[in-house]
Design a protein around this nucleic acid. Structure first.
Length: 590
RNA sequence: GCCUCUUUAGCUCAAUGGCAGAGCAGCGGUAUCGUAAACCGUAGAUGUCAGUUCGAUUCUGACAAGAGGCUCCA
């Protein structure tokens, strides 16, 4: 067994290992069923996963979900036959002979030999032999609850230069009850999908008349965004940032100097000719902020200099990768560039991290982890090993000082330096990069940035790129799903709806709205010709935090009857008291 | 981009190789109501472009948009 797999399995509990074995066996059953139905098929791989299992094969016919009943029927035959699963170790020669027609398996065998592991086969009765390290159940009859879920294409080794294989996803549980529960949760999760809620709550618009990945922030979404922006400005100002504005286009030369043009040209929109120069729609802000730095001589006394901007950038993302607000082509970053001395890097890094942690806490997010992005030998990077080593050391020093738990990820560095990312999971369990902190010793050099040190000599500053939320679009999507649309009071587009019971209450209700609005509360009146019950239902579905109901009782006594979106009746109270409650709740951002 | 699938009214969903049907929302009325859907009436749609056909929303193709995937180690 390989070291990696071994470590992975050791981390799991006994029950998890059994579930893993169950799913892996289900996958072998799927494979054998596929082999029976499509004899020319070549299996590439088929692991158990956190959610179930999948089967990758090279097959020359189209497989679609319409084929599932047929495949599942064939699987059931193998399960009913209760075939024993037995392991056998063989020599590389024998394995190569056995799988001589399957180039994928031959590749695996080479890998195993390279690692120095033993070559293990699993036999399913006498119907199938597969290269597999297991573990498996002792027989196929123990599989009770399984289902196939979807068909997808998957490149061999995930590399689009390789052949696209057919992948079938399925899942398997110990009991039918657990499987049903899993499928139910999946359905529940879909209800809080930001794409569904975003439309229902009128937060944003995506339409093919505008173009893929180009988000229109609708009035209600714009309010949420403005609240987030206000928080950012306020917090960053407290933390010593200076805010700037920069244009949406600039000369191509800027990104040639930065190196982005050479490495990421395919992510940028085609240059446009203006006068005699070529201009780009900006794919990132770094050059602009560096030009602001460079606009005057800088002293060590000016550092750290923190230049911030909530700025929209434009990137060409592949059509198949776009997804609601989670991946878009118009991206608004809470961007900043910190110019500092080498001595200041660790402290600045920690300062940014603390701010990022503050934001995560403020928004109540806990389903995230930290990923340290380092170089991998394959990718293209700027600079030499000495500089990289220095940047990596600085980041690790800072992380160790904070005693953070993180995952190392080779190949996930920025091209100019290592970085620490916050990875957040969405409602379907998919991972998205949000916040990022990047240490960069390269770009200051390429742009010729300097400061005068204490001895009067010019020196290079270090640059920290950072976006603690990442993009406001993605953040919005994450928030919608996190709160299932019921945003906390301070973020709610409409905070209070005032509901007059009958037409004669409209005037009083109007006055209450005025009073709330002059107290900076986002309040609206619902004076449509509808019953109170219908209005309550409507605004509850719209996730409006509070409903203030005005009827005869309230008209006489100058009070309001308050109901929350969760259905709680707070009874009748004076407006002043209600305002106090609102202010407190908004202040606490809870 | 590639694989599989999807596209009918603002939204949720029906139906059909021969006049496309409903609920909600909208609009016009009636009712003026105490904590999750009052009633009556009315208007509104087959993503785009080709092809097959007497006739296409339905079949075929292209395009567009959308969904789930695209290295959790044999």
């Amino acid at each position: 067994m390989s070291k990696i797999l071994d470590e992975k399995l050791q981390k799991r509990s006994i029950e998890e290992r059994e579930l893993w074995a169950l799913r892996h066996t289900a996958e072998h059953v799927l494979h054998t069923a596929m082999q029976n139905l499509y004899p020319k098929l070549k299996k590439a791989m088929g692991p158990a996963t956190e959610e179930g299992f999948y089967h990758d094969c090279d097959v020359d016919v189209k497989i679609s979900e319409d084929n599932f009943p047929k495949i599942e029927k064939e699987m059931q035959k193998l399960i009913d036959a209760d075939l024993p699963m037995t392991q056998e170790y063989v020599s590389a020669e024998k394995a190569r002979e056995l799988f001589k027609d399957n180039q994928y398996k031959l590749e695996w065998i080479d890998d195993i030999v390279k690692r120095g592991d033993k070559i293990s086969l699993y036999e399913m009765g006498d119907v199938d032999v597969d290269l597999c390290s297991g573990p498996h159940l002792s027989s196929t009859g123990q599989i009770k609850a399984y289902t196939l879920l979807s068909v997808a294409g998957a490149y061999w080794h995930g590399d689009e230069k390789n052949k696209m294989l057919t992948r079938i996803y399925g899942t398997c549980f110990a009991t039918q009850k657990e499987l049903d529960e899993y499928l139910r949760l999946l359905e529940e999760a879909k209800k809080r999908d930001h794409r569904k809620l975003g439309q229902q709550l009128g937060l944003y618009v995506l339409t093919n008349e505008v173009g893929s990945g180009l988000v229109l922030w609708a009035p209600k979404g714009a309010i949420v965004r403005r609240e987030i922006e206000n928080l950012i400005y306020e917090e960053q100002t407290k933390r010593g940032y200076q805010h700037v504005y920069t244009p949406h286009i600039g000369k191509k030369q800027l990104w040639q100097t930065s190196g982005h043009w050479d490495l990421y040209r395919d992510k940028m929109y085609a240059p446009m000719k203006i006068d005699d120069d070529e201009y780009l729609v900006k794919p990132m802000n770094c050059p602009f902020h560096m030009m602001i730095y460079k606009s005057q001589p800088r002293s060590y006394r000016d550092l750290p200099l923190r230049i911030a901007e909530i700025a929209s950038v434009y990137r060409y993302e592949k059509p198949g990768e776009l997804s609601g607000m989670l991946r878009v082509r118009y991206i608004t970053q809470d961007d900043a560039h910190i110019f500092c001395t080498e001595d200041q890097v660790v402290d600045e890094f920690i300062g940014v991290f603390d701010y990022m942690a503050f934001l995560l806490k403020t928004f109540g997010l806990t389903n995230y982890y930290l990923r340290l992005g380092l170089r991998s030998p394959k990718e293209k990077y700027l600079g030499d090993d000495v500089v990289w080593k220095k940047a990596e050391d600085e980041i690790i020093k800072a992380i160790e000082k904070k005693d953070l738990v993180y995952e190392r990820s080779e190949g996930n560095a920025a091209f100019y330096g290592p970085k620490l990312d916050v990875i957040v999971k969405d409602v379907l369990g998919r991972e998205w990069q949000c916040g990022t902190i990047q240490v960069d010793f390269m770009l200051p050099d390429r742009f010729g940035l300097e400061y005068i040190d204490q001895s009067g000599k010019p020196k290079r500053p270090v640059l920290i790129h950072r976006a603690p939320l990442g993009s406001l679009e993605r953040w919005m999507a994450i928030l919608i799903e996190h709160y299932a649309g019921a945003l906390p009071l301070w973020l709610s587009p409409v905070q209070v709806v005032v509901i007059p019971i009958a037409e004669r209450h409209n005037e009083t209700a109007g006055k209450i709205v005025e009073a709330l609005r002059s107290a900076q509360i986002r309040a609206e009146i619902d004076d449509r010709n509808d019953t109170m019950q219908a209005k309550i239902r409507n605004h509850t579905l719209q996730k409006v935090p509070y409903m203030a109901i005005i009827g005869d009782r309230e008209r006489v006594s100058d009070q309001i009857a308050v109901r929350t979106r969760s259905g709680k009746d707070l009874k009748t109270m004076y407006l002043e008291k209600f305002l106090g409650r609102l202010r407190k709740e908004i202040e606490s951002k809870s």
